[in-house]
Simulated scan of single mutants.
Amino acid sequence: MENLDEQQFEALVVEGLDALSDEIVDGLDNVVFVTEDRPEDGSLSVLGLYDGVALTERGQYGFGELPDRIILFREPLLAVSESLDELKEQIHITLVHEIAHYYGIDDEQLHELGWA
């Protein structure tokens, strides 16, 4: 897959977010979506990351918390995609996967649902 720069990649992520159904997005609260080139360890095997406290574990969650972050990693996503359409599909799958973690759905449940 040709190399997209950060702005082009970020535009595809925004497009992917806009395409998600309202039922997925409407429940998101105090979450930011960011893009980074790679995970901190430099790995190309991690496509995305949910960094926060899942809704199911929030308890006394209230005002003043930093937003949870959903991170999509540009270089790993480019590495697994052979075309622009495949990249868009991988971005969609990664967004749904990481948003599911926000809702407290773990990898095992995602696998059962066909999203892991």
Rank of each mutant, 00 (worst) to 15 (best):
H97V: 09
N30E: 09
R74S: 08
N30A: 11
N3P: 00
Y61D: 15
D85A: 14
D85Y: 02
D29M: 07
L47P: 05
V31Y: 03
V13Y: 04
E10C: 03
L12F: 04
E82V: 05
F33S: 06
T94I: 05
P76H: 07
E6Q: 08
L17S: 02
E89W: 01
L47F: 14
R74Y: 04
E2S: 06
Y61H: 13
P67L: 08
G27N: 14
R38N: 09
L28F: 04
I99A: 09
E89I: 00
A11I: 00
L55V: 13
V32D: 14
L78K: 10
L66H: 09
D68G: 13
F73N: 02
V34Y: 01
H101I: 05
G16K: 02
L4E: 05
H111P: 00
L66R: 13
T35W: 01
L72V: 04
E6M: 07
T35H: 02
S43K: 08
E82T: 08
E2P: 05
L44Y: 11
D51C: 06
G48Y: 01
Y61R: 13
E65M: 13
P76Q: 08
L55N: 08
G114F: 04
M1S: 15
E6L: 02
G27C: 11
V34D: 06
R58S: 10
A11M: 07
W115M: 12
N3L: 11
L44S: 11
V32C: 10
A54E: 14
I70L: 12
M1G: 15
G104A: 12
E6R: 09
